[in-house]
Write a protein that binds this DNA or RNA. Structure first.
Length: 479
DNA sequence: CCGACGATGAGCTTACAT
DNA sequence: ATGTAAGCTCATCGTCGG
């Protein structure tokens, strides 16, 4: 038997893993990078599992396998495919990537990672497809690597237009999954170009109802009365964290009262409207969106962010998900988890991901939320209470508080996470930032690495829990 | 302390002409 | 293929007046 020589020593390790697996920590102490150690563990365990299964089937004496056994055999076969990759010598490029030193603060233009892989933004920016547009695909052009397949699922989001090389680097830290770039103008009346790295299936996605309106005039019908013919916009630009001053509205009104028919003035006004995302709310009166209008554009319930200052509402909304877009991607979870899911929500903000799940009517049995801003935590807690959620909500302030020990404790207590969702800070990536657009290693945006750390802790713990369960059911089947 | 306001471009993209 | 122009961006900071 090909695997018999390996199984005995591995089974000893398996037994050790019942009292809290120290092997990953040991490997890290020995100087192996976390990712490499984790991959090695996963694949060694795959061999062990396969050996165990070959033993069962040789003892089954010609009986018909139960459905459960067949399902498990398929699982074992998937593992067997990974063996080939495991024994193949890793190519030099992958080796170099694995041996890369941990992230340090570095300037962008000296970043060596930026030149080996250049990720281009698609045009049109529809990802794997959007509703009501041609170009829908049901299979990924680049499959998800085996190591990242299956639950627990994860969903990571950030701005599409980052400095060069940033998306390639984020992809390389998230199992080399290719990002899905989607502009939310295909879901609502405002543009929002974002990239999403996730391991979700992409077949049979569906929209949440009711769908938002696609044009400004339909979404805000009261503006039609005041909308000048020479302003041809039908879509708004990206919802940002800051709005125009009231003085700008006054200046525009005064200019138009004098030179309403001057094409040059008209062009200048339209430019200002595009720059500041203004809509027409009165005669010659172009004003920024109200907070509740932004909420509608982003797919939140009316006055989701009420109770905090106006300025904070704009800031929180500008930093949020577009709910309809995210819900479209997460919709594939609904048939998979009819009884609900456990969610680990990092950088929760005002809870865009949870609102999406709620509007999909996917019950949330548990949400562990990490959010540094107090006003955002208050908003999210209000949402949780007012929608009469039955599940548990556990809040943390800082990702630093969520170490391996705490993650594993929560997973033991609640039976693991089904979804890890979050978008890390974009402050140092966003084009609107004049002062500190320092890239992925910037003070705020480097929290991306905490997302990776926590995700890997969840996935490795989940694989250990699956193994433990398999041994348990194995023990039962022999009685 | 809070909020309104104005100043502060780079870095990336696409579109179009050459 | 290459150059040029135009368009857009989950923002930050200091000042000032309440």
């Amino acid at each position: 038997n090909l695997y018999s020589g390996l199984s005995s020593s591995d089974e000893e390790n398996e037994l050790n893993s019942f009292h809290g697996d120290g092997r990953l920590q040991d490997l890290i102490k020995m100087g192996y990078p976390r990712k490499e150690a984790s991959i090695a563990l996963e694949r060694c365990d795959a061999i062990s599992v396969l050996a165990t299964y070959s033993c069962i089937f040789s003892n089954s004496s010609g009986e018909i396998a139960s459905l459960a056994e067949v399902v498990d055999f398929i699982f074992a076969a998937q593992m067997a495919r990974q063996l080939d990759e495991f024994w193949a010598a890793p190519d030099e490029q992958e080796q170099r990537r694995i041996n890369e030193p941990p992230p340090r603060r570095r300037r962008l233009n000296t970043d060596i990672a930026s030149d080996d892989e250049l990720i281009r933004l698609p045009n049109p920016m529809i990802g794997f497809g959007v509703p009501k547009e041609p170009g829908l695909i049901t299979e990924r052009p680049v499959p998800i690597p085996n190591i990242a397949c299956g639950p627990p699922y994860f969903y990571y989001e950030n701005v599409a237009m980052t400095p060069k090389g940033v998306w390639a680097k984020m992809s390389s830290h998230l199992y080399d999954i290719k990002p899905e770039f989607v502009d939310s103008l295909y879901f609502c009346a405002a543009a929002r170009k974002r990239g999403y790295i996730h391991n979700l299936p992409i077949k049979n996605r569906f929209e949440i109802q009711p769908t938002p309106h696609y044009t400004i005039q339909e979404e805000f019908p009261l503006t039609k009365k005041w909308w000048p013919a020479w302003d041809k916009r039908t879509k708004l630009n990206c919802v940002l964290t800051c709005i125009a001053s009231a003085q700008l509205t006054n200046k525009i009104r005064k200019r138009l009262e004098k030179h309403e028919r001057d094409p040059a003035v008209q062009k200048d006004v339209v430019d200002q409207c595009k720059k500041w995302n203004l809509v027409w709310v009165g005669k010659n009166k172009a004003a920024p969106l109200e907070p509740y209008e932004m909420e509608r554009l982003l797919g939140f319930p009316n006055n989701h962010t009420r109770g905090i200052s106006r300025k904070d509402r704009y800031k929180s909304l500008g930093n949020s998900f577009q709910v309809d877009t995210v819900a479209y991607h997460l919709s594939v979870l609904k048939p998979l988890y009819p009884k609900g899911i456990n969610v680990l929500s990092l950088f929760t903000g005002i809870g865009g991901g949870e609102v999406a799940l709620h509007r999909l009517q996917i019950p949330m049995k548990l949400v562990v939320s990490v959010e540094i801003s107090e006003v955002n935590r208050n908003i999210f807690r209000s949402f949780w209470e007012q929608t009469n959620q039955r599940g548990d909500l556990i809040e943390f302030r800082d990702v630093e508080e969520l170490d391996d020990h705490k993650i594993e404790g929560l997973m033991d207590q609640y039976g693991g996470f089904d979804l890890v969702i979050g978008g890390s800070p974009c402050n140092n990536l966003a084009g609107a930032n004049r002062v500190s657009r320092t890239g992925l290693e910037g003070d705020q945006s480097s929290l991306f690495y905490d997302y990776c750390r926590i995700l890997e802790a969840v996935r490795s713990k989940a694989s250990r829990m699956r193994r433990r369960d398999r041994y348990k059911s194995l023990g039962n089947s022999f009685q």
